[in-house]
Design a protein around this nucleic acid. Structure first.
Lengths: 218, 218
DNA sequence: GCTTCGCTGACAATTCGCTGACGGCCGTCG
DNA sequence: CGACGGCCGTCAGCGAATTGTCAGCGAAGC
């Protein structure tokens, strides 16, 4: 899962990134409204955390333009506590939820999880594919009920494939969502990870579409 | 045990949180109805203390929606003294007990304990994991019946892990619950505490899942 | 058959978490 | 008032798990 965090205060932004990264998401962080708009318009994100007070182009406008351009990713806006008008404006502009600042990171996490779950359409916190169970709340993967020891990056990979079960996911898309902005990896790194995963989950859990990408589920 | 306190008066809310925290519970406090509903809907609480007069979405509606969504955690509602109608309405909506305001904190504590005990089923105020016993009433930890000398912060840590046995608790979540809003600590502080705890409880009492967090129990 | 793409085992680099030591803070006791 | 001891945060070095890189191999597609 790949997230865009838009927050002009660098300290808060970094903290949020850290928390979300720890929770298993690939996080891109930008601090200016224009950059935010551009990123959201040109890249594919599973969710956006959007602060409203931004230099250069304010959050509400950014959000409105995304929606006007037909971008439907869930957006969670951060508002000043008690600023009722901001919230209403945000919801009207197309936000899916709001979180008053200051907030507990745990609450941020809960909302992010809930929004992603809702947007993907799985009501439950677990995804089942064949004999595999992916619990997004505890970040665990189990096979026939037996927990598997999956590393953080491996989890990101299965989790993304599982959320998009039944569809072929290209390697570039996968890289984006597993690594975020971090371009430095060799293309082979993904393949190596897939290999390691197959050793744990069973070879047939992930199928390869040569020239296209990977897929989970029928 | 993790509790949600919903109370719009910040002074009362803080007092209640303080009392319950001192009693060894991990307490989340929210002041608005919508936030309360969201939290109760997305997070796991062992009990909710719910004030009825709330901004944004009233307590009865919150409670009804939780029950309609199949959430069964015990709910203790706070009502105005003598407001018979409110009580009836609350119980009808699915509350498990009520406490008329103003109340003594001792009474609140007693009812909270009673409700939690009832909901756990067997009146045991202790959690047992392997050879460890965590007594939530006295905030003591014992191993094979022998009391261990556990410091306050250490107790919060084991207690939180014990209450969430069987699931991996991320370090950020753990930090939230051990330190509250206090961001200033080095990440290493937790690790040091875990190390000290393991020396007391035995190394296998707390397992590490690298990259994810810590866990107690199977 | 040849080329390209992807797989895999081995190895290296890096990151993460553990631990012993130290020191600051604070409450208690002589 | 000063010394002592408990609690807990910080530091630095170590070891191990995770992840990236490389090289060779096999299979698919033309």
């Amino acid at each position: 899962m790949r997230l865009l965090v838009v927050e002009d205060d660098p300290r808060i932004g970094e903290d949020v990134r850290t928390v979300l990264t720890a929770a298993g998401y690939a996080v891109d962080l930008v601090t200016e409204g224009r950059d935010a708009w551009f990123r959201g318009d040109t890249e594919d994100y599973d969710l956006v955390v959007l602060d409203l007070g931004l230099p250069n182009m304010d959050g509400i406008s950014v959000l409105k333009q995304w929606r006007a351009a037909g971008r439907h990713m869930p957006v969670l806006i951060l508002t000043a506590r008690g600023s009722w008008a901001e919230r209403v404006e945000g919801i009207d502009a197309g936000a899916d939820d709001y979180l008053p600042k200051p907030f507990q990171f745990e609450e941020l996490l809960a909302r992010v999880r809930a929004l992603i779950r809702r947007s993907v359409g799985h009501g439950a916190a677990t995804i089942e594919i064949g004999e595999l169970t992916i619990d997004t709340r505890t970040m665990r993967v189990a096979q026939n009920g037996l927990p598997l020891n999956v590393t953080p990056l491996e989890y990101r990979l299965v989790s993304y494939l599982a959320h998009h079960r039944g569809r072929v996911v290209s390697t570039t898309e996968l890289q984006d969502h597993v690594y975020g902005d971090d371009f430095s990896r060799d293309a082979n790194a993904l393949e190596a990870m897939v290999a390691r995963l197959r050793k744990k989950l069973g070879a047939e859990a992930i199928t390869t579409r040569r020239g296209f990408g990977y897929m989970m589920g029928a």
